[in-house]
Amino acid sequence: MWPPRFSRAQVIVAVLLFVLGLGLAIQVRSTSEGGPLRGARQEDLVRILDELDDRTARLQDEKQRLEGQRRELENSSDQAEEARRQTKQKERELGVLAGTVGAEGPGIRITIQDPSRAVDADMLLDAIQELRAAGAEAIEINDVRIVASTYLEGSRKVRIDGHPVSAPYRFSVIGEAKDLEPALNIPGGVVQTLEREQATVRVTPSEKITVDALRSAKQPDYAQSSE
């Protein structure tokens, strides 16, 4: 067999075997290198594609469900935030009424000088009632906050909620000044009654009154909310 005879038959056979070797090499390489899908038949590919579609649909459903859940949670947390905000707002408003927080706003200052020591608790109470009737929202007398449970006692030595206060009595009142002032000045009203007792009353409106005397909130012992 050696040296090779270059006959036509030999060459043709060699060419065919060359083609065979080429095909073998290509096939072996593509089988070993290609992905698992490379040699797959058409129906297998269709099946795999179907499965992938199913899986995609399932995952899409799942995604939608989870997104809905997220939306729900976001809504509820928004609502909780809103409720908290409203509660805070309510707390502040009630705090002003109960005297547990400071307050500021437009209003009037009243100074009552009492040289003859004739002013008693009834007159101060009258003044407070008149102010409340005129829409006063927060009142403070000589650094004592006037609230719903405030009481006044004593005729010559006035005490408010047990704190002794003495002339001059300085009121800080938050409210509409042009309602509060006439309410005090009506004929036979607070100012006239006090002036009859030789007390001098000075009322000054102000754009910014600060009421910062505080009371601690007291837990009721007996009264329970009936709601």
Binding site: R5, Q10, L22, A25, R29
Partner: peptide
Amino acid sequence: MIAVIGLVLGVLAGLVVQPVLP
């Protein structure tokens, strides 16, 4: 003999050139 050489050449060509089949 030349046939065997053809086969070997084919395998080598396939491995070296790495043709991509349509």
